[in-house]
Amino acid sequence: MFRVNCSYATTHRLINNTNCVLSFTTHQFPVKSGRLRRLAYIGQIFSSLEILPCLRIPRCYFSAIDMSKAGQKDTSSTVPPGTIFRNWITADGSSGYKAEKDRYHLYVSLACPWAHRTLITRKLKGLEDVISYTVVDFLMPKEGWRFNPEVDKCEKDPIFDAKYLKEIYQKVSPGYEGRVSVPVLFDKKTNQIVNNESSEIIRMFTKEFDEFCADDQKRAVDIYPEELRPQIDAINEWVFPFINIGVYRCGFAKEQESYDKAVENLFEHLDKAEQVLSKSRYLVGDRLTEADVRLYTTLARFDHVYHGHFKCNKKRIIDYPNLWGFLRDLYQTPGFAETTNFEHIRKHYMMSHLHVNPFGIVHMGPSLDFNSSHGRNEKEIWNSSGTHAGTF
């Protein structure tokens, strides 16, 4: 057994005649191979388990965790390690980056579930007039995320007038050859990328900018309260690898066995989330937390994109009474619908992932009413057959 522990951006070459296990903090993904020769670029795997920003083809990540046939020939390309930006903004500036109004700028894609987290949290905290943002084009050409003012909701890069997001990475880090991902939290004062890890950005927005929130109600919003952190972390530990990442493992699988396992894991944990939400309005009791935000961005895309495009078609979210109610509940909560753009979502996945959808044809459906009554604020619950089961 060959084990590699990855806590920070690392490049490893795995050469072994037996099974290999990549250990990602608390999660282990078995990699079976006869003679595995691979440059395993795991440039965005951390102790927080936050990886895979919205990328064109996360080839290395998926080839690493989805190799499932002994003796299978490794045909993946070698990818160089990337630079990761993991600085932190603090209210008092002790980190070197002080929370200030109009100092920081977000680069996001409305299609990307990871970038979507940051926009939701920014709205929940009332930071619209504090942190500006720019949306990149939903269409990702081979050069990567681009700025295209001809596309609705998009505009030119206001800082460098860059054509592609990679130019900003390269201005900050000359010679940068790593992954160019969104979101990006940029410091206009120092012309530096502060952070491109969504899980950390949303926690900065939650805690460090309270002085600048629009009002006391927004200031009181805390989606990662200290007393609930163990429960939130416990939820994140299975939602992230099996649901957030799980849909990609289904969609980008290149072997039947890998796909079958990914689908099995995905729906096992969607069933688990359905059971949790049968007992409480949110994932951690009766309070909205980051666990809900993180699940929402995957659920919102599921029936529109993942169900068909990624072949996650065992069930739809609308087939789950509590998940569908939960999804509508959040969508109707201020901060969620305003940041959810189904046009960008559908067009990005179906026009950019030509390895999945070669002709780039964008489907028209489904027609879903996210504004229909959900009843969860009335503490209604439903059993697996869709019949009313009481209150919680």
Rank of each mutant, 00 (worst) to 15 (best):
C6S: 10
C6M: 08
C6D: 06
S7Q: 12
T11N: 03
H12A: 15
H12I: 14
L14Y: 14
N16Y: 08
N16V: 06
T18A: 12
C20Q: 07
C20K: 02
S23I: 11
T25G: 14
P30H: 04
K32E: 14
R37Y: 15
A40G: 04
Y41G: 12
Q44Y: 04
I45P: 01
S48D: 14
L49P: 00
I51F: 05
R56L: 15
P58F: 08
R59S: 05
Y61I: 08
Y61L: 06
Y61W: 13
S63W: 03
S63N: 07
I65C: 14
D66M: 08
D66P: 00
M67A: 11
S68D: 00
S68R: 03
G71H: 00
Q72S: 14
Q72M: 10
K73F: 06
D74M: 11
D74K: 13
T75H: 04
S77C: 10
S77H: 10
S77Y: 11
T78S: 09
V79S: 07
T83C: 07
T83L: 01
F85H: 02
I89V: 10
A91G: 10
D92M: 07
G93I: 05
S94M: 08
S94G: 15
G96V: 00
G96D: 01
K98P: 03
A99I: 04
K101Q: 08
D102Y: 04
R103D: 01
H105S: 05
L106S: 06
Y107I: 04
S109Q: 09
S109R: 05
L110E: 00
A111R: 01
W114K: 07
